[in-house]
């Protein structure tokens, strides 16, 4: 293992004009510095022409913090006005501790949003894919499922068996064939 690539916070990595500052680095003046301990890596970013991205990373990854992006969460409880969920995964990286989020009635779906009934969209225990729309009041993140690909991705029926989506708002129990209402996510 090459120990030369190990850098520590405050260590100078190069000129700011040569690289794009990736995670674990920061720019001060016209120089690029490391902000965490880890291995220095240079990767090419092809999207915006030929730019080199410098990142510092290590095994011990930080717990993710919700930002405006898609995430996976679990419904904890529902009220007629909103569903309270705990956010488990943010942009494919798991949170070490769960964050609390709220899906309001008007954010469940894009159409006929005044006719939404929370209990016909989510049930406690459902796993849903959602999107952060705002950083809400002091304690909760406001989430939305008002897109085709957002909604319930896994749910159990009253019987306790897994359910499969049969339309965008119905799911069927694999055991009893009973149909329950959910706001389903469109499979990719």
């Amino acid at each position: 293992m090459n120990t030369k690539n190990i850098v520590t916070p405050g260590q100078r990595l190069g000129f700011a004009q040569d690289y794009v500052a990736g995670p674990g680095t920061y720019v001060r003046g016209n120089l690029l510095y490391a902000s965490v301990v880890g291995m220095k890596r240079v990767s090419k970013q092809t999207a915006e022409g030929e730019t080199l991205v410098l990142t510092v990373s290590r095994e011990k990854q930080q717990s993710a913090i919700p930002e405006v992006c898609s995430l996976v969460s679990k419904v904890i409880r529902i009220t007629p006005k909103e569903a309270v969920v705990s956010i488990m995964v943010v942009d494919n990286s798991p949170c070490k501790e769960d964050f609390q989020g709220i899906i309001r009635q008007q954010d469940v779906r894009a159409t006929e949003r005044d006719k939404v009934k929370i209990h016909e969209s989510f049930r406690p225990g459902d796993i849903i894919r959602a999107e952060v729309i705002s950083l809400g009041d002091a304690r909760s993140y406001y989430l939305s499922t008002a897109k085709n690909e957002l909604g319930v991705i896994y749910a159990q029926s009253i019987e306790g068996a897994a359910m499969i989506p049969i339309s965008w708002q119905e799911m069927q129990c694999t055991k009893t064939k009973a149909i329950e209402l959910r706001k389903c996510a469109k499979p990719f």
């Binding site: 916070p9 920061y26 001060r28 510095y33 965490v36 290590r58 990854q61 930080q62």
Partner: peptide
Amino acid sequence: IDAGIPMKD
């Protein structure tokens, strides 16, 4: 530093 929290120096 051990926690991996970014700091300037």
